[in-house]
């Protein structure tokens, strides 16, 4: 299903969407990407972005360009931060979707223990952590920006 949409340009469209983020700084760009990654993962669209799909071709180069630094160590740090942002957005977004592997695993495990739960009951409790993840990582990205300026 997602495969068909990809043949018709779904990933390209996702890229255009990210490229449309007009963040002058690394921090703002990555915070925007974090938000998009969390929201799409929460809708079950976990594979439209990723290290191979978006980070390497798009997010990392854009972040490096925004950093505008000649120092290789700094550039490596910026790239690593881009990859980290993708992971964090994915991990703390996907569990809000009701049919992701981890939710089904928990449901199956609890059933064996004699506790019957709906996936929806589990997935709503991923929302507080998702918000906390966004705040914590957003704050770190903001500080990363300030460090880069110096």
């Amino acid at each position: 299903m997602i495969g068909v949409l990809e043949r018709h340009g779904l990933q390209e469209r996702a890229r255009t969407l990210i490229a449309g983020l007009k963040g002058a700084t690394v921090g703002r760009l990555l915070t925007g990407y974090l938000l998009i990654r969390q929201l799409t993962a929460a809708l079950g669209l976990t594979s439209i972005a990723g290290h191979a799909q978006t980070v390497r071709p798009l997010v990392a180069p854009m972040a490096v360009a925004a950093a505008a630094s000649d120092d290789e160590t700094t550039n490596d740090q910026v790239k690593a931060m881009a990859a980290a942002t993708d992971n964090i957005g994915l991990f703390f977004g996907e569990d809000i979707f009701i049919a992701i592997g981890s939710i089904l695993l928990m449901k199956g495990f609890l059933e064996q223990q004699g506790i019957v739960l709906e996936p929806l009951e589990l997935s709503v409790w991923a929302i507080p952590t998702a918000i906390a993840a966004f705040l914590i990582h957003g704050f770190r990205l903001w500080r990363f920006d300030r460090r880069l300026k110096r």
Partner: peptide
């Protein structure tokens, strides 16, 4: 609450 314990435990 089992849903909260498990969901946030997984996270």
């Amino acid at each position: 609450n089992p849903a909260i314990v498990c969901a946030i435990g997984m996270l």
